[in-house]
Structures are given as C-alpha cells and as structure tokens.
Amino acid sequence: MNATVRPVPYVAIANAGKVYPSSHGAVTALSDINLDIRPGEFISIVGPSGCGKSTLMKCVAGLETITGGTISVAGQPLSGPPDGMGVVFQRDVLLDWRTILDNVLLQAEFMGRPRAQYRDRAMQLLDRFGLGGFEKRHPWELSGGMRQRASICRALLCDPDLLLMDEPFGALDAMTRDDLNVELSRIWQGTNKTVLFITHSISEAVFLADRVVMMSRSPGRIVDVIDIDLPRPRSLSIRETPAFGAYTQCIRHHFAELGILQE
C-alpha cells in the first residue's frame, strides 16, 4: 500500500484505554488511543484540562498501567518504566537538600550507574542550559525557570532516547517560557531523541512539534493529529508568520467546534 518504507515507530500506542474505578462508577480517562511516534520525532499533545493527556504520558512512562490495548516502546511491550527514558514533570521536583549538580547526578545514582562517570556530562548539560556556575547552589536559591532547567538536565543526564515532558513550563511566566521553548527546540535539534511533550498551550505545541496531537475530554481521546511543516531551526519570530498563525488557528477552530474553546 505504501510506496515508501514506513519507519518502525519508537512508541506504538494501539487501542489504549484507561478506566478508573471510583465511588460514582467507572471513569474513562482514556478511550481508544492510537498513536505511532517515529524515532527522533517531537510530538506535542495539546488539550483542555481533564482530557487525560497527563494520564497518557504516565502510561507511556510505565508509571500507570493501561486497562486496555497495548503500548510498546522500542519494540518492547511496556511492563513498568522502560529503559532509556527521561521524564520532566510540571513541578521541577528537585531535592532541596542537594546542590544543583547533585540533583542532576541523582538520575545516574537512581539508575545504578557510577556518579563519577557522569560528572563531566552533568557539568556540560548545566552549561548548555545556562546554569554554568550554579552547580554548587541549592534549588531554593534559584528562580523557577532555572530550577526547571536543572530538572531537564537531570532527565537528560543518562542520554535517554525518549524524553517525556508533562507541562514542564506550565508554572513559569510567559517570558521564561518563551525562552525555554527556544532552548529546548535548539537542544533537541542536534539529537535524535523522541520527545512527547504535554501542554495546554496551542502556540507552544505548534512551535515545538513535528506533529501536534489534539485531545478532547469525557472521555479522553485523540481528535486529530496535525503535521507541522515549519522550517527548523525555529526562532520566536516564526510565531508571527502566516504559516504559524494558520496552524494555531486551525487547532483553535477545531477545539471551538468541539465546544472546548469559544470563538
């Protein structure tokens, strides 16, 4: 059927569903999710609160189990958190009693790898994320944006093939957020990492992604997947171009049709 060879998906989600039992009966958090993510692809998932986008990410991370369908990562069906994965959470979850460097190295410690081998890489990462010179500081001495940068460094320390990000910039102010979007985009480009990025900001989703997955709620489901065909590297000014505006407008329009946004 296909003229070209389809690449093997790095993350394959087939008919995945998640049903929670609750005192008011079963709640369907995710229903019939189908999504193939190619290796090295940047996927944004955008949707309103309660659409199950964070639940979907936790399922891919192996932190929650699906109640139907299958998820495989690197060809392996999931049973718990997969190898070679880094996760960034909405809050930075840095340990207050450790320095920034020790917080980044925690990833290696938890994965049972020798700290000494990762020290240089940790310093390089901190440098690349503008945290050079702050490695001896404690998280509470840093701003929210710097803390979230450190938590991205931690997720990247062991060079994961898959990076999952759950609204990582949701708690930051608009300017810091723009800044980190550019930085993330720039750093991702030189790698072949597969990224699953959860956000509730349409323009953030379009700016970062190769494809934007739109989700809706009750039950949580995928309503559309949109290819973002914008040139890379992308700078913030791309947001003023007609092409960018067309994408965000199309997504906004679609959400409006679903009754999620007002037009």
Partner: peptide
C-alpha cells in the same frame, strides 16, 4: 511526583528511602 521521578528511573526501594 518526586516518587514518580524516582520510579521512572527504576530506583531501588532502598535508594528512595535513603535519598528521598
């Protein structure tokens, strides 16, 4: 989420106890 962060790296129970 701190525990999720540790679980995502498949940290041992002892590590979670001692370090978190």
């Amino acid at each position: 989420d701190m525990l999720n962060m540790a679980r995502a790296t498949r940290a041992s129970k002892l590590d979670v106890l001692l370090k978190i």
